[in-house]
């Protein structure tokens, strides 16, 4: 099948999509946008988090066909040209990136969290990120990154 969708503001088209393909597969393998990650492909890790019409979803759980005609925003679409989004910058500054495989999903998730709740408390941050696994950091510096991003955004 053919799937038409808008990704990071650009109209895109994927051809020869097989019924069982996920939005994640189409982004990564057909649209040359491998930023969203494939750590579990069954909705358990959050590494594939993307915005779908403004809502954060696990791209691995969305069938490619369901994305037809809709708008997707991925980690590749967050920076403003060379300028990183404050969340991306905060992940760098806080040292929240080790292997970085969890990072794209977390950054999308935090980006969304801070839009909904610009000053989250620690328990709120933990709740919001409970579905995003990270195996490297023990999460401490991820919490730091969220606090820093919130601060930067507030000023």
């Amino acid at each position: 099948m053919r799937v038409n969708l808008t990704v990071n503001g650009v109209a895109m088209q994927a051809d020869d999509v097989w019924e069982g393909e996920s939005l994640l597969y189409v982004l990564r393998e057909r649209l040359a946008l491998p930023g969203s990650k494939n750590a579990c492909e069954q909705g358990e890790c959050g590494s594939c988090s993307v915005y779908l019409d403004g809502e954060v979803v696990c791209a691995c759980l969305v069938a490619a066909g369901q994305a037809q005609g809709r708008s997707v925003r991925t980690v590749e679409g967050l920076a403003d040209g060379e300028r990183l989004d404050p969340v991306q910058q905060a992940f760098l500054d806080a040292g929240a990136v080790q292997c970085g495989f969890c990072t794209p999903g977390l950054i999308v998730m935090v980006h969304d969290l801070l839009q909904r709740n610009p000053q989250p408390s620690d328990p709120e941050i933990r709740e919001a990120l409970a579905g995003n696994l990270c195996r490297c950091t023990g999460y401490e510096k991820i919490l730091d990154a969220v606090r820093q991003a919130a601060e930067v955004k507030a000023t």
Binding site: R28, E29, A32, L33, P34, G35, S36, K37, N38, T74, V75, E76, L78, A79, L84, Q88, Q89, F91, L92, G95, V97, G100, F101, T103, P104, I107
Partner: peptide, 23 residues
């Protein structure tokens, strides 16, 4: 010192090529 990691910017932008991203 504590310089930034050289792969950091690419990692936060989703532009760092992991093995599963190769094409």
């Amino acid at each position: 010192g504590s310089p930034q990691r050289p792969d950091g910017v690419r990692k936060v932008r989703g532009e760092f090529a992991y093995a599963s991203d190769l094409w």
